[in-house]
Structure formats: structure tokens, C-alpha cells
Amino acid sequence: MILLRRIWDHDLAWSFRRSPVTVVAAALTVICVGAALLAPWASPQDPFDMAALNLSDAFTPPAWEDKGMASYPLGTDNQGRDILSTIMHGARISLGVGIAAVLFALVLGVSLGLLSGYLGGRVDAVIMRIADVQLSFPAILIALLIDGFARVALPGDRHDELAIPVLVLAIGFAGWVQYARTVRGSTMVEKEKEYVQAARVIGRRPLAIMLSHVLPNVTGPVLVIGTIHIATAIITEATLSFLGVGVPATRPSLGTLIRIGNEFLYSGEWWITVFPGLALVVLVLSVNLLGDWLRDALNPKLR
């Protein structure tokens, strides 16, 4: 009870309650994440189970249209897969890839930023020049490059099962620079503070100081970047999948679904591509709004 009380009274909780947009965004995020997490149990149909599919139900429009069926609330695609179910499963893959990619970028970026900022000198120069070069390419191009390289390097039969890990690495690697730069800047400020010198006088090693003293003091901005980056990573994944280089069609993400549906858009079967698209917009928008709120709430100047 006391714990709940303290969470309720916390600064963050207070600014959260005061922003209706944020509350709505949080609710939508919870719904999206919940639907994605519970997809295997909550979805009306298992779209990956070939036996459950009925080809004669293909191209059924949404339930409220003339030929709609109640068992397929948002209609079906060209193989008779329930759109609602594919969206739930697709969001699961999109979110999973997005979060995993952000975690990878975060760990890589924070480590390099800490090293760069704390050690300075040549280490700093090398890491930051690599970052500069990478920033001159669009993230999607880097992800495409890595994905394409992995496609050539991996044997064909293993490619489909490794597609998702490769995608995570590609998107994550394309996004580490932001973390590195932010953390480097804060680290350079923190390392001049006397508590770091006090730790050095005690005789602690640079790595220990970086991890136990500097790291806890530079994580605030990282949290904000990470939240907003999840939305960007989901978009990048969707773009790659839309271009056909992301996840395989047998395990479609939201981007794959949009691409599949795109082929039928002009023949009138709009629901196949529009609903996954809407789901993507809602998911990305609500995560983005949450990130914006977090950025403002953690900024003492805007309190």
C-alpha cells in the first residue's frame, strides 16, 4: 500500500495524471502491447496454422460490409487469414523486433559513449569519427546494407530462421550513434566532477568508475531516447518488411502485412492493407507520445 502511495505521489506520476494525451497514449500502448503479447491465446484464429485456414473464405470484407462474416471482424486476406489475428501476431513481431533492436542499440551506444567520453583522446576520436560517418547515411540504408550483407553471407536454408535476429542487429546497429553521442556528452561532464576523482583517489579502476559511478548519472536522457527510438525502430522494421527484405512472409510483421495487402489495394480489397497500416500508426504514435511526455517530464527546466 505504502509503495503504491509513493508511486502515486511521485513527480512522474503527477505529471502523467495531468496530461490527458499521455493517459490516452499509455492506454493505447497498453492495448497494443497487450494484444501483441496475448496474440497466441486471444486471437480468433491462428494465422500460421495452415489447417485452420479456409481458402474459400479468402477476401472476406470486414464484418460490417455486405459480404462480411462475424467470425472475421476485420475481414480476411488472400489466403483466408483473419486480418485481426494477423495484426495481433504481426504487432507481436514488430514490437519484439523494435524493442530488441532498441536494447541492442542502447547497450552498444551507451558502452561506446561511456568509453569515448571517459577515456577521451584517441579512443574518443576513433569512435566519434565512426559515428560521424555513420550519421551521414540514412539509418534505413545502413539497415538495408547489413541485412543484404547477412543475406549473402548466410546459407540460403538458414536465412529464414535467422531473419529476425539479423533484422534486430541491422536496425539496432543503425541506431547506436544517438545513444553514444548523448552518453559521451554527459560522461564528459560527470567525469570532471569530484565524486569521480574521489573514486580515483580510492584507487578504483576506470571500468569500475564508468559502470558504478558515471553510468547511473547519465541514464536519464538514454531512457527518453530509447522510448522514442522504439517507435522509430518499429517504422524501420515495417519499411524493411514492406520492401521485402525484412521478416519472411511466413511470419509476417505489420510491414509485411501492409506489403501483402498493397497488391490488392487497387482491386478493391482495401482492408487487407489499411487495418495493419492503422495498427502501425496507432502503435507508433502512442509510443512516440509517451516518449515525448517522458522527455518533458524528466526535463527539470519544463517542470
Partner: peptide, 17 residues
Amino acid sequence: RLQMIFQDPYASLNPRW
């Protein structure tokens, strides 16, 4: 052993500890 006491009491203690 040598130890040191610093000038700025606001910067010499890690705020997260």
C-alpha cells in the same frame, strides 16, 4: 595512505548513491 577532501560538497558525492 593518502586521501583527499574536495572543495565542492555538492559535486564530491555521487548523487545516485
